[in-house]
Write a protein that binds this DNA or RNA. Structure first.
Length: 565
RNA sequence: GUCCGGUUCGUCUAGGGGUUAGGACACCGCCCUUUCACGGCGGCAACACGGGUUCAAAUCCCGUACCGGAUACCA
């Protein structure tokens, strides 16, 4: 029997973190077992479902690259089948018509109302005391024919209990006395959730229902429906909830954007990183087995710590199992008052880890997209030859630890594909999100970049001499180094022969210059850094000079813009 | 209220009768360094509480506390 699982969100908002994790686990389980991952939109709550939500959920899944199999099922399309099923149960005497007038819905706080009602009824509440439960079929038919409105309720037996084995929470039992005669069909003919889910899961031949723990008790009701229908229920696996800091419920209403997948996409997260993070919320790989695989049979090593958490999709798929899902809820940590901690620390770390250790070829398309959206992309960065592309992609086999990049390229030629690749590899080492490529890294791709006032203060204003020194250094560059384009200098160099603009040579020149001025190397370097890149942080200045190239370095060293701010 | 779950460093977690209770993130310190990072090394930090069972309990059992879920003609 091939495994068939489904992700069944209700389109009442964007894809939030809990749903995303549910989708991921379903996906991983399907791929691990060679089964099918199906998608069903549970849009039967007409009042709250929107097409926009559906689109947003689909976008979220697409971003996470959780592709589904087969056609998307829209639950509302199956309403007729649900009604037919309810009527069948009615005809068989397994359900009955309830002519009790529908209670007016209390709009405000439904949850509280339910709770209060349940508490008030406590003690004498008999789940089987519905007056219409044992109405004769003749009278029931007659009243229905007369046009009286009725809901259809499942007739739950007086004694006994439902039970099922949950792959995560173990054996579950519930006395029938705890379960009311649940409504299958509303008096307006609208099928309700529990009926719809069961019908659709049967229809879609679902073998494993993997969903949030909030459905654990619903499962008893659904098992009852399966039994009434004479269908063997699927396997169930309920996932521990993802909670907000403090162990409170994570809600769209209270926590807002922080729970939405689109937030992470828009903040420059890599789907692979976020997926990896999500997978570790409520699940962990078998550390022993994983370590054994890595060490090729060396039983001595118990756990391989670092490699154990960074897992690409296929590693997640290989290691995934329902058995290793936890029972206790996980807290998604964030602090809306702290910009640095706007979302979970570990998620941020993982994203940075992916950005700097991913195979370079894999990160390039994302950088391109980011630069494009920031209008910093230039056609020159496109690969202009097959050979180049191949030489890059060959590094893709190195795996996540690939570091530093094996791509050794001449990055002196500014504006080419080679330059772009080298530049990305250089600057990604201290980036956290894709956004950094267009923000912190803007000066590498554009002449139009801002100066961070704090950096200017720290590295320039404090040393007024730099105002004349740095243009002097530019002159020195111009005279000492060959023109990168032609390879030979047209200038008559003061020194015996012009040098190529390499890190080694730059270092020699800058050091000599520093000594002449009787200052410290750090003052010159950091001043240059701020003038060249607008910020106080970045890679080694020698590589910055080289990456920016001789011409741009000179231009910026002479620029007085920062000084005039 | 009732029913059902859960509880290992701040967070994600490993471990499930004998461990110096392991790792990751975060934090702190040191090294590296022209900056900031990265990286390396080290540090801080946990078995909710109370009873049992046992030679031995974080681990098994029972309570208590706390947290969560469910209890709809919502999904």
């Amino acid at each position: 029997m091939t495994v068939r699982v489904r992700f069944a969100p209700s389109p009442t908002g964007y894809l939030h973190i809990g749903s995303a994790r549910t989708a991921l686990f379903n996906y991983l389980y399907a791929r691990h077992t060679g089964g099918k991952f199906l998608l069903r939109i549970e849009d039967t709550d007409l009042a709250r479902s929107t097409e926009e939500s559906t689109r947003s959920i689909l976008d979220g899944l697409a971003w996470l690259e959780l592709g589904h199999d087969e056609e998307i099922v829209f639950q509302s399309d199956n309403a007729d089948k649900h009604r037919t099923t309810a009527k069948k149960l009615l005809a068989e005497g397994k359900a009955y018509r309830d002519f009790t007038p529908k209670a007016e819905p209390t709009d405000a706080n439904v949850k509280d109302t339910i709770k209060d009602r349940a508490r008030a009824a406590q003690g004498e509440k008999n789940m089987r005391d519905n007056p219409y439960r044992d109405l004769s079929s003749e009278e029931s038919d007659a009243r229905a024919t007369a046009g009286e409105l009725f809901a259809i309720r499942l007739k739950v037996a007086e004694t006994g209990k439902t039970s099922f084995e949950d792959a995560v929470y173990g054996q579950q039992e519930r006395d029938y006395a705890e379960t009311e005669d649940l409504v299958l069909l509303r008096s307006d003919g609208h099928p309700l959730y529990n009926l719809a889910v069961v019908c659709d899961d049967i229809e879609m031949a679902i073998t494993h229902v993997v969903r949030g723990q909030d459905h654990l008790t619903n499962t008893h009701k659904q098992v009852l429906i399966y039994e009434a229908l004479g269908v063997k229920p699927p396997e169930f696996a309920h996932l521990p909830l993802i909670l907000a800091p403090g162990g409170k419920k994570l809600s769209k209403r209270i926590h807002g954007e922080i729970v939405s997948m689109t937030t992470y996409r828009d903040a420059g997260f890599l789907a692979a990183a976020f997926r990896n993070f999500l997978a570790l919320m409520g699940w962990s790989p078998n550390s022993n087995q994983y370590a054994a695989d890595l060490t090729t049979g060396n039983e001595e090593i118990k756990v391989n710590p670092c490699v154990g958490e960074i897992m690409n999709l296929s590693e997640l798929i290989d290691n995934f199992s329902l058995e290793r899902i936890h029972r206790s809820p996980a807290i998604f940590n964030f602090d809306s008052n702290n910009p640095k901690r706007w979302t979970d620390d570990k998620a941020q770390w993982m994203n940075a880890e992916y950005i700097r250790t991913m195979p370079l070829a894999d990160v390039l398309p994302f950088v391109k997209a980011e630069l494009k959206s920031a209008k910093l992309w230039r056609e020159e960065y496109e690969p202009d030859g097959r050979a180049l592309v191949e030489s890059i992609s060959s590094t893709a086999d190195e795996g996540p630890d690939h570091r530093p990049s094996g791509v050794a390229m001449d990055i002196s030629e500014n504006g080419s594909y080679d330059w772009f690749v080298g530049c990305v590899d250089l600057i990604r080492q201290r980036f956290f999100t894709l956004k950094d490529f267009s923000a912190q890294g803007r000066a590498y791709f554009s002449e139009d970049f801002d100066f961070d006032p704090a950096a200017v203060e720290k590295n320039l204003s404090k040393f007024p001499d730099l105002k004349t020194w740095l243009p002097e250094l530019a002159d020195r560059f111009e005279n000492e180094f060959t023109d990168e384009a032609s390879g030979s200098s047209l200038h008559v160099s003061k020194s015996s022969s012009p040098l190529p603009f390499t890190q080694e040579n730059i270092e020699t020149v800058v050091k000599a210059f520093t000594e002449e001025k009787g200052t410290k190397l750090g003052i010159i370097m950091n001043g240059a850094r701020t003038l060249l890149t607008g910020v106080a942080v970045g890679p080694s200045m020698l590589s910055v000079f080289q990456t920016l190239g001789k011409e741009r370095s000179i231009l910026r060293l002479r620029s007085q813009i920062a000084w005039n701010q």
